[in-house]
Design a binder for these strands. Structure first.
Lengths: 128, 128
DNA sequence: CCAATAGTTCGGTATTTTGGAACAACGGTA
DNA sequence: TACCGTTGTTCCAAAATACCGAACTATTGG
């Protein structure tokens, strides 16, 4: 049976999930999977950006080992699906919330920019 | 004016926020700040774990540069506050959702464990 | 059997994390 | 003023990660 290693549902950890989603390429993958009706292979789910195949492979592994996606080998390709139910069981509402938030963050390249328009601390506390 | 560099509200990026919170030490800091009535200095907000001061300083910088916390120098210490309103303005509901989720993840060391009880892909798709 | 396709693994380089040691800044005390 | 204890940063080097190209494996189609 074509098998990759996945954490059991109870072993999905929040920091791992957030770290997995805290990368522009990986959250793009998750968005693509969330928008897809069925599972997607790595080439379809992976962004078109200038990302090497080996790097993409690495990103999928991070998502898989964090418990975010389920990966099944099917013929020559891998079918990836979001572990929606598992994530919801563990952290109800989290995935949907992050997907919603990611809609408010598209467009801005969000990637390697150091810090666009930095701001200094004004004497008083911020927007509290 | 004692000033650190903070991103402007509009420059807060989701991947940066998730990556910042995707670390056991850093989310512990954020939880402490969320639970506190007022701002906390680094020693109070930082976990008691075996984390060197220099490392803690690094973690606070990551949180600050991701736009998660506001840091103001006050006398000999730094006062840290959550940028609740800014985060909510940018990603409504996200912070609260993550804080809720983090409650479901305490206890489990969540840290460096490789993968506790791994599971193999069963022929059919998972909990879909 | 041969070629094409989909991904993984390997090797080296670049970036990030981590902690110890040294340093700077402030508050309190005399 | 000088001196100390506290708080936190910066500097440096080691460990761990991320990234890409090249080589490799596995499967499908002709």
């Amino acid at each position: 049976m074509s098998c990759y290693l996945h954490p059991a549902t109870d072993d999905i950890r929040l920091p791992a999930v957030l770290a997995a989603l805290g990368d522009p390429v990986r959250i793009a993958i998750v968005r693509a999977l969330a928008a897809a009706e069925a599972g997607l292979n790595c080439s379809m789910a992976g962004p078109i950006e200038n990302v090497a195949r080996s790097t993409l492979s690495h990103h999928f592994r991070v998502l898989r080992e964090a418990g975010v996606i389920w990966m099944v080998k099917k013929g020559v390709e891998n079918i990836n699906t979001l572990r929606r139910a598992d994530l919801d069981g563990r952290f109800p509402g989290l995935l949907d919330q992050i997907l919603r938030s990611s809609c408010a963050d598209i467009g801005q390249d969000s990637a390697s920019e150091p810090m666009a328009k930095p701001v200094e601390a004004h004497g008083a506390l911020p927007s509290a």
